[in-house]
Simulated scan of single mutants.
Amino acid sequence: MTSIDQAKQAVRDQVWRLLEREGAVPRGSYGKIPGFDGAEATAERLAGLDLWKRAGTVKANPDWAQLPVRIQALKDGKLLYMAVPKMATLQPFFLLDPASLDVPPEQAAEKKGAAQVARRVGVEDMRPIDLVICGSVAVNRSGARIGKGAGYSDLEVALLIEAGLVTDQTAIVAPVHQLQVVDENIPETEHDFSVDLIVTPDEVIECPNRRRPQGLVWEDLSPEKIGAIPVLAALADAGKDAQE
C-alpha cells in the first residue's frame, strides 16, 4: 500500500466511524458506500437544481446510497445508465429507459430489479452522459473524493471519458451525508476524478477544482484487475492486436 493509499484509507476509516458513531447510517456500513439518513431529501434537493432539470441522460453507480437518485431520474423521465456491479460483463452498464419500463421506478432502480428488466449495453451503444452520480465515502469542498477503495467508479468514468461520452459538458455529482464532507486534504492520483457538485440533505456545494483523467490509465491497472473486468480485457487485447 502506497502512502497515498494509506492516507485515503485513514480518511475512509475516520468517516465510516463517525457516521456509525452518530447513527447516520445503518449498522454494518463500515467498508461500504454508505446508505445514509437523508438520502431521499438529498435526491429531492438535487432534483430541484437546474443542471438536473436540463439533464436527459444520467449515469449512476449501483449502491444503495444512490437508490433515491436513480428512482428520481426514472420518475423524471431521464435515460438512466446504471453500472453493472463490479463491471462484471462485457457490456458493463444497465440501460433503464423510463419510456419502456413495465415495472415501477422503485423496482427498476434497484440492483436486482435492474438485472431483471434492463438491457446491458457497452459504451458503443450509449448516448453522451449529461450527469454522473458517483457514490463516495468522503469528499471535500474542493471536489476531491474517495470511494470505498475498489476503484470501480474511477474505471467507469475513465471508460466513458475515453469513449467520448463524459465530456467537459458533463457534471459529476456526489450525493452524501453532511458528515461525509471533510475538511482534510484528500490526495489524488492520475486516475482520480473530482466532483463538480456535492449535494447533502442540508446544502449544495459547488467545487472549484475540476480534475479528470484523459481516459483509462493503463499503468495503474494490474494484470489481475484487467483480467477481472471483461471490457478492460477486451480493450487490452484490441490494443495488442493493433500493435502487431
Rank of each mutant, 00 (worst) to 15 (best):
D5A: 15
A7Y: 11
Q9W: 09
Q9A: 14
R21Y: 08
R27K: 14
K32S: 13
I33C: 08
I33Y: 12
A39L: 09
A41C: 12
R45Y: 13
L49I: 02
D50L: 13
A60W: 03
N61T: 04
R70E: 04
P85F: 04
P85M: 03
Q91L: 14
F93D: 06
A99G: 05
A99N: 06
P104Y: 00
E110A: 01
G113I: 11
A115K: 06
R120V: 15
V123T: 14
R127N: 05
P128A: 11
I129A: 02
D130G: 08
L131H: 00
V132K: 08
V132S: 02
I133H: 03
V137H: 08
G151I: 07
L155K: 01
L160T: 00
E162T: 08
G164T: 06
V173Q: 01
A174K: 02
A174Q: 01
H177Y: 09
Q178T: 14
V182H: 14
D183R: 08
N185R: 15
E188A: 09
H191N: 12
H191F: 09
D192E: 15
S194D: 03
D196I: 05
E206M: 07
E206S: 09
C207M: 13
Q214W: 15
V217L: 02
V217C: 10
E224A: 13
K225E: 14
I229L: 03
V231P: 03
L232R: 12
G239P: 00
A242R: 11
Q243M: 13
E244N: 11
